[in-house]
């Protein structure tokens, strides 16, 4: 009974406090002009401690923020690095494709202008030694390639097919010591004044034309073309330009250094002359068409 009374008393007291607090809320809820002295004192008492704790809190927060932002930045950095790497790869691929496209376009334009029937091939390997000048291309006898077929680019003479397999062939470059090409000076085009173009032992970057008669009157800058007398290389294919006349035996024969038009170190695509006449049609070889070929080869082209 006493316990029940106590419980009732507690409940009544609680209700009274609730009512009191509700009144307090009503009076203070809308805002007050002034705080009571007790509130003032309490706030003044807590303020310094709150400041200290708040500053500690801010430090902890900035520490955690720094950790979080460090990991965020790190992951972002990693992601951006990966993206850059990917984009760089794509850029290199794009530049390669652009250059390849340019070269193919040059070859195609040349092929269309030329009187010869040609097939394009890619250089798939090159002799790493400096002793021989050979490259391997991705066309073989199944593509119609035969031994001694002439290999050119839009820039000029490259060499001839030396060995043929089903899907690839080896090209003997004109810089190889085993090669010799009958050539003449384009300016004179005199079939009686022909020389032999060979590799130049002292500097593999150059060729040498020898056995030119003294009356050929060669001079630096003269364009050297194939004479067609050897039976392998058609007449009028550009070989290079005279760089320097070698005056060793002036009374007997002339020799000169030739700067080849083809950059043999950067050979990537070539054309193989598989016959006469354009796109499989037989066309008689005329002097005009040959000179047109030479002129088209002479056009200065600049790679992008």
């Amino acid at each position: 009974m006493a316990r029940r009374n106590k419980g009732r008393r507690n409940l009544v007291a609680l209700l009274a406090v609730v009512v009191g607090l509700l009144l307090l809320i009503v009076f203070t809820g809308e805002g007050r002009e002034q705080l009571t002295p007790v509130e003032d004192a309490l706030l003044a008492l807590f303020a310094p401690a709150q400041t200290a704790f708040s500053s500690a809190g801010q430090k902890i927060q900035s520490f955690f923020d720094a950790i979080v932002s460090f990991y965020e930045l790190k992951s972002e950095n990693d992601l951006l690095r990966k993206k850059i790497s990917l984009l760089e790869q794509q850029l290199v691929q794009f530049q390669e494709l652009q250059k390849e496209n340019y070269r193919y376009r040059q070859l195609l334009e040349f092929k269309e202008r030329s009187s010869h029937r040609m097939i394009a091939a890619e250089v798939i390997a090159r002799d790493p030694s400096q002793w021989f000048g050979t490259v391997t291309i991705n066309r073989g006898y199944l593509d119609g390639v035969k031994q001694e077929m002439v290999v050119i680019t839009d820039r000029g003479l490259v060499g001839m097919i030396s060995t043929v397999s089903p899907h690839s062939s080896q090209v003997l470059l004109i810089t190889d010591p085993r090669m010799a090409v009958s050539a003449m000076i384009q300016r004179t085009r005199d079939p009686a004044k022909v020389g032999i173009v060979e590799s130049f032992a002292n500097d593999p970057a150059y060729l040498k034309i020898s056995y030119l008669p003294p009356e050929a009157k060669i001079q630096p800058g003269d364009v050297v073309i194939s004479s067609g007398l050897g039976g392998i290389f058609p007449k009028g294919i550009l070989i290079g330009t005279i760089k320097e006349v070698i005056d060793d035996k002036p009374d007997m024969v002339l020799s000169a250094l030739i700067e080849p038009r083809v950059n043999f170190n950067r050979l990537e695509e070539v054309l193989i002359i598989i016959g006469e006449g354009m796109t499989g049609e037989s066309q008689p070889e005329t002097e005009d068409s040959q000179s047109e070929t030479v002129e088209s080869q002479e056009e200065d082209v600049t790679e992008p």
Binding site: T28, G29, G31, V38, L42
Partner: peptide, 9 residues
Amino acid sequence: IIFSKALGF
């Protein structure tokens, strides 16, 4: 007192 101007809530 510390966090709110209104008392009782």
